[in-house]
Design a protein around this nucleic acid. Structure first.
Lengths: 253, 253
DNA sequence: CGGCTCGTTGACAATAATCAAGCGAGGTGG
DNA sequence: CCACCTCGCTTGATTATTGTCAACGAGCCG
């Protein structure tokens, strides 16, 4: 399939949730992508640990995770990606992948050659800051996961994760008032939360029993957002949503 | 105290561990910093959650941590910073701090006004990539911490942390063959590892009992690096040390 | 000296992991 | 069409890891 502008709509929405883009800037960004949209089958790697990609991958459809497998065989998911996310933009400055990225579901992706990104860095300070910011948003979520893993118990952590994904999907228009699609098995959620699959099951039952959420058929239904936020001690600050903090429209660039 | 070039030596060393800098580039970077070196007392905040700093802080001397406190009163340290590190460079593109940074020990810092960093982004693609990379190295360490927290047990996690800090300090010349200064209480280490202080004590005894390390008087002595690495399942890949992967000297920019 | 922080230890409790088994839906081949 | 298989979810029993509480000692400093 070949790329048309509608494919990048979620990507632009994700950026413009925070920072305004001119028509010309949208055009410049769009031009950085290959014309070819690639389908990726579920449960296959998009990028592999140790590789040195010469392009970065934008997720157009589907869900992907970054992960690493440790000696014991346990796998830890370090990031969850939704449509509109660059799954490995950091490989542009960093060069080497220190982890793998896998398609959780069937995905559609499009590549941005690093050479094209480099042209953006050379020619547009504003877009450079936009791209840099995208990687820093991932970083902020990493930190929040560390907090959730280290200072919260499993049921809070699970609630926290659901709050996060709900808002992130909402920001690109992929959530509704009731909930959102989360095509993840309990085992995959276990690898995300850093707990066992059995315990995930119990924790979800706890959240369901408290009438906070329902999670069935790969879909999360939110029953009580207020209390879910409270349970997960969720503070959306780290998602940096909203234009309030938008440097680029505040006139300093 | 006023800044002289020797103050930035560790910073340059940290960069040049990965990417070559021309004399002119060193000069450009140096010019981005304020002339004033600031002393920060131990246990005081350098930057506060929720603030919108107009400058970023380079750590010249001492140790600092990024942290967040959750409702239960527990505090989770999300990053540990050593001399030569920018503790909040991400606040330049991101604007708002979603966590605080505290001086673990007495520190000396110097500020880089965001306006000056912006000039760099406008004028030097190479240095822009250098700065971007610095934030991505933090990000890579975040991911590694997530893996250690979620997929490893406490004693492995502790071993992993010690390996990491040893190599990071070594990269800027602040470690020796025997070990390094780690001016951290067991309680602070507990907040870092996401476990209780009592358990930190037991875990350290375990590592000491296995003759892997000694940790006393704010100093870690490494007794058996090989086995420590094995215990912590430590893979230095994520630190991206060494010039092998240096885009900037491989001629593509 | 007295008060403080930090490290240490033991007893006990809570949280989560592991092991094992069963169930139901969906897919596949005979 | 049905038997059978696999996968994901669920449950109970047991164990392991880690947390909490409480107390004490060493060292430091006013």
């Amino acid at each position: 399939m070949s790329l048309d502008s509608s494919h990048l709509e979620l990507f632009f929405r994700r950026i413009e949730e925070r920072m305004a883009l001119s028509a010309e800037e949208r055009q410049t960004l769009a031009a950085a992508f290959a014309s070819q949209v690639t389908a990726v089958r579920a449960k296959t790697d998009i990028v592999t640990e140790g590789s040195r990609p010469h392009r970065s991958t934008l997720l157009l459809e589907g869900f992907a995770v970054r992960y690493r497998v440790v000696e014991s065989g346990k796998r830890q998911i370090t990031a969850l990606h939704v449509p509109g996310d660059f799954v490995d933009l950091h490989s542009f400055p960093l060069r080497m992948m220190d982890h793998s990225v896998e398609a959780l579901t069937a995905c559609k992706v499009v590549a941005a050659p690093h050479a094209a990104l480099l042209e953006i860095v050379k020619s547009s300070p504003r877009l450079t800051l936009v791209l840099w910011t995208l990687t820093l948003l991932d970083s902020a979520i990493h930190r929040e996961w560390i907090v959730a893993m280290g200072a919260m118990q499993a049921s809070q952590h699970a609630a926290h994760l659901i709050c996060e994904v709900y808002l992130r999907l909402g920001a690109v228009g992929l959530a509704d008032n009731n909930g959102f699609a989360l095509p993840m098995t309990q085992e995959e959620m276990a690898d995300t939360l850093g707990i066992s699959a059995v315990h995930v099951n119990r924790v979800l039952q706890e959240l369901r029993g408290a009438n906070l959420i329902r999670f069935e058929g790969g879909r999360v239904t939110i029953l009580d957002w207020e209390r879910l936020v409270e349970r997960g001690q969720f503070d959306a600050k780290h998602l940096h949503l909203g234009k309030v903090h938008d440097a680029l429209v505040e006139g300093w660039i």
